[in-house]
Design a protein around this nucleic acid. Structure first.
Length: 307
RNA sequence: CGCGGGGUAGAGCAGUCGGUAGCUCAUCGGGCUCAUAACCCGAAGGUCGUGAGGUUCAAGUCCCACCCCCGCAA
């Protein structure tokens, strides 16, 4: 089938690549516009970069449903595929291709609808999530399911690691779904609305660690926010990002440092404590707690958070 | 021209008023210990991001240019 592929971040890249190696043909790629980057070199989004390498034409629109309809209709695609594209699509847009729009979603729908399903699954301490390939309906992530694949979440897995796993798992599922569609063997299973859950997009400020929560919850949040937007707290007026931590025994006022040793900085939580093993100081690079302590004086009794 | 911080031993940092550098950890050697990631003693390791740039008797420290890294904001 002739496919128009729409996606933006790293997550979508394996889908695009696998698609180009399948029997289907990607005739164009649509991504979000290049955002102005002030610091460092301006780079295209991962999908655009890969598409250019593969020699596939790239289209970019602020609102594809408004500005891109005619262009895409003119390409005469059999199906349009989206993977972490990042824009809502209009009803008109959904009708452009005969097979409509097929979406790759990183959760087992109807659970975890919304734009940050991977992080939320980790934050909530889930042990399993997955990939859903569905036909896109107008209402966010509510379309009929074509295929699903479960993926286990490791106990210490970060959202970033899970991202990669799901991204790799999603690519073959997508091809499978397109094959089924083309062969007329696809089934469309409606979602059970009563079981639907929705989680909003993660915001940067949501990453502030609340040490009054139980240690387990704190760790899940730290895992879920790693690597983006990253969990953080503050000490001495400086912001510190926290990337890795584990639950340990300990008691103290929430946020209080109860140990600062080579293997980690232990901070008391609402219940038990967390040992921080990887962090990043303001203006610094990500480093182990051990390296951090070599040059920063963190003493027992220091309180993190609430500046 | 969005705001700001930084590039000093392998790593993380300090270096006050300009006078050729210091701390913690790691490394190597030795010691102590039943033992140890612990402790004690000692050693090695740096042309201080780049420019045979500017100011100066003298620059890590001040000025200029460039490169790279990072935080915030988008």
């Amino acid at each position: 089938m002739k496919v128009v592929f729409m996606g933006t971040p790293d997550f979508a890249v394996p889908c695009l690549e696998t698609l180009t190696q399948s029997r289907h043909k990607v005739i164009a790629v649509v991504t979000q516009p290049d955002r102005p980057r002030n610091r460092g070199q301006v780079t295209f989004c991962p999908v655009k970069e890969r598409a250019l390498e593969l020699g596939i034409p790239v289209l970019q629109y602020e609102k594809v449903s408004r500005e891109g309809v005619d262009d895409i209709r003119a390409l005469n695609p059999d199906v349009i595929v989206t993977a972490a594209f990042g824009q809502m699509l209009s009803c008109e847009f959904l009708e452009i291709a005969p097979y409509g729009v097929i979406n790759v979603h990183a959760s087992l729908l109807p659970k975890y609808r919304g734009s940050s399903p991977i992080q939320w699954a980790v934050i909530n301490g889930e042990t399993e999530t997955g990939i859903t390939i569905m036909k896109t309906a107008y209402k966010m992530d509510s379309g009929d399911i074509i295929t699903q694949k479960e993926v286990a979440i490791g106990e210490d897995e970060t959202a970033g690691e899970l991202f990669e796993k799901l991204s790799r798992a999603g690519a073959p599922e997508l091809v499978k779904a397109l094959d089924l569609l083309e062969d007329g063997k696809a089934t469309f299973t409606p979602q059970d609305e009563s079981k639907a859950t929705y989680f909003p997009m993660l915001k940067k400020e949501d990453g502030e660690v609340d040490f009054s929560l139980p240690a387990h919850d704190v760790v899940c949040r730290i895992r879920g926010f790693n690597p983006w937007p990253s969990a953080f707290t503050s000490a001495g007026g400086k912001r510190i990002k926290i990337f890795k931590a584990a639950v340990v025994e300990g008691k103290g006022k929430p946020g209080e440092v109860i140990a600062a040793e080579r293997d980690g900085i232990t901070v008391a939580c609402g219940d038990n404590a967390v040992k921080i093993t990887e962090l990043q100081p303001e203006n610094g690079k990500k480093m182990s707690a051990r390296d951090y302590l070599a040059g920063h004086k963190i003493t027992v009794g220091t309180v993190f958070g609430n500046v």
